[in-house]
Amino acid sequence: MPFKTTEISNPQFESNNLRFITVKSPNLKGRGDICVYVPPGAKPADTVPIVILLHGVYGSVWSWSHSAGVHLTANELIANGELPPMIIAMPSDGLWGDGSGYLLNSGYNFEKWIAEDVPMAIRENIAGAKKDSPLFISGLSMGGFGALRIGAKYGHLFRAVSGMSSITSLPQIKLFAEEPLKYYAQDNVVDEDVFATFKHYRNQLPPVRFDCGVNDLLIRYNRDLHQKMLQAGMPHIYEEHGGGHEWSYWAKHVITTLRFFASYF
C-alpha cells in the first residue's frame, strides 16, 4: 500500500549521491526519514540490491553518512570495481528517547518501520530498487541488535544479515539509554534477545555475520552469542578486531559487511 504522503529531496541540491526521503508511516504514527545512497548510473530498468544500515543510540538519519562517510566509501569501492552497485538506505530509528531499539514501543511499531516501510519507500522512490532487489540489513550497537533480530524474524525478506558491535540482549541498552528498561519490555520475550530470536526463527535464518572490537564494552556479549551459536550448530561468521565502541571502528569494518553482502548478490 503506497504511503499517504512522500517527500524526496530535489536532485538539484543533492551531493555525493545522497538523497533524503520522508514518508508518513502508520507504524510511526507520523513521518519517518531515510537517507539514501544511490550508486551513479542507477536506472529504472536495473535491479539494484538494497542494503539497510541502522544507526545506534543517540543517532538519526544522518549518522552513517556524516559520522562514517559510508556513502563516500561505497562510491569509491564501486567505482574501483571492488563492490558491485548497491543502494544503501539509512533510516532513523523513529527517534524515541535515546533509541527505540527498533522494537514495538508505546504503541509505535519501530520494527515494522524498518522491515516493511523502509524497503517499500526505497522501491517507490529510487531507480533500480525493485521488488526482487536482494535485500540486506546491518547496523551498529543498538542498530546491530535491530539488524540481527529483524533480519532473523523477517528472514523471508532478507538475503543476509550483519551486526557490528551489537547489543545482543535488551538489558544491555541500559549501558547507553537513560529511559527505564521497563519501557522497552516486549510482550514476547523472544523479541528481547538475539539468540532467542535466532532459535525461534532458525528455519528461516539468513546467512549471519557479526563482529566486535576487542576493547568494546559489548565484546563479552558478542563472544557469548558466538559461543551459543556454535553450541547450537548455527552457521555464522564472527570476527574480532582492534578498536572500541567508536565511529573509527564502524567506518572501517562496515566495508567487510558490504563485501559479505555482495557475496550473496
Results as ranks from 00 to 15, higher is better:
residue 229 M to V: 08
residue 19 R to S: 01
residue 102 Y to W: 15
residue 5 T to C: 06
residue 119 P to I: 01
residue 131 K to W: 04
residue 1 M to K: 05
residue 194 V to N: 06
residue 51 V to L: 10
residue 184 Y to C: 12
residue 154 Y to W: 15
residue 3 F to Y: 07
residue 231 Q to I: 01
residue 187 D to T: 13
residue 73 T to L: 13
residue 11 P to C: 09
residue 29 K to L: 06
residue 220 R to C: 07
residue 54 L to F: 13
residue 85 P to F: 07
residue 223 R to H: 07
residue 71 H to Y: 07
residue 105 N to Y: 04
residue 98 D to H: 14
residue 94 G to H: 06
residue 249 Y to I: 09
residue 142 M to Y: 10
residue 226 H to I: 00
residue 84 P to T: 12
residue 219 I to K: 07
residue 208 V to N: 02
residue 213 G to K: 02
residue 162 S to P: 02
residue 166 S to G: 03
residue 244 G to R: 03
residue 217 L to E: 15
residue 106 S to G: 09
residue 228 K to W: 13
residue 162 S to Q: 05
residue 171 P to A: 09
residue 158 F to N: 10
residue 117 D to V: 00
residue 34 I to D: 11
residue 40 P to Q: 12
residue 231 Q to A: 12
residue 88 I to A: 01
residue 225 L to P: 00
residue 254 V to R: 13
residue 123 R to D: 04
residue 73 T to W: 07
residue 203 N to H: 03
residue 240 E to F: 03
residue 159 R to A: 15
residue 184 Y to M: 11
residue 161 V to D: 03
residue 192 E to A: 11
residue 133 S to H: 04
residue 160 A to C: 08
residue 260 F to D: 10
residue 180 P to R: 07
residue 209 R to D: 14
residue 225 L to I: 00
residue 134 P to H: 01
residue 126 I to H: 11
residue 2 P to H: 13
residue 22 T to H: 08
residue 155 G to R: 11
residue 149 R to T: 14
residue 6 T to C: 03
residue 140 L to M: 11
residue 213 G to P: 07
residue 83 L to F: 04
residue 156 H to F: 10
residue 30 G to F: 05
residue 104 L to A: 12
residue 235 P to H: 02
residue 117 D to H: 04
residue 186 Q to P: 06
residue 256 T to C: 06
residue 265 F to C: 09
residue 195 F to R: 03
residue 156 H to I: 05
residue 255 I to W: 13
residue 57 V to L: 10
residue 7 E to F: 08
residue 64 W to K: 01
residue 158 F to I: 13
residue 30 G to R: 04
residue 256 T to Q: 14
residue 205 L to E: 01
residue 129 A to D: 05
residue 48 V to K: 05
residue 156 H to P: 00
residue 202 R to P: 00
residue 68 A to G: 04
residue 246 E to F: 05
residue 53 L to I: 06
residue 263 S to F: 02
residue 51 V to Q: 07
residue 128 G to I: 02
residue 41 G to E: 09
residue 172 Q to F: 13
residue 187 D to A: 15
residue 112 K to W: 01
residue 187 D to W: 10
residue 121 A to S: 02
residue 46 D to C: 06
residue 26 P to T: 08
residue 210 F to L: 05
residue 171 P to H: 12
residue 116 E to G: 01
residue 140 L to Y: 03
residue 171 P to G: 14
residue 9 S to D: 03
residue 188 N to P: 08
residue 262 A to T: 06
residue 162 S to Y: 04
residue 212 C to S: 05
residue 38 V to D: 03
residue 98 D to T: 08
residue 73 T to I: 12
residue 134 P to L: 00
residue 131 K to G: 09
residue 144 G to N: 02
residue 158 F to E: 10
residue 259 R to T: 15
residue 256 T to Y: 14
residue 12 Q to I: 15
residue 187 D to C: 06
residue 42 A to V: 08
residue 60 S to R: 01
residue 52 I to L: 14
residue 177 A to S: 14
residue 189 V to F: 12
residue 125 N to Q: 08
residue 265 F to G: 11
residue 130 K to F: 04
residue 19 R to G: 07
residue 68 A to E: 11
residue 176 F to Y: 15
residue 122 I to C: 03
residue 31 R to Y: 12
residue 130 K to Q: 10
residue 51 V to Y: 02
residue 156 H to S: 15
residue 220 R to M: 14
residue 102 Y to P: 00
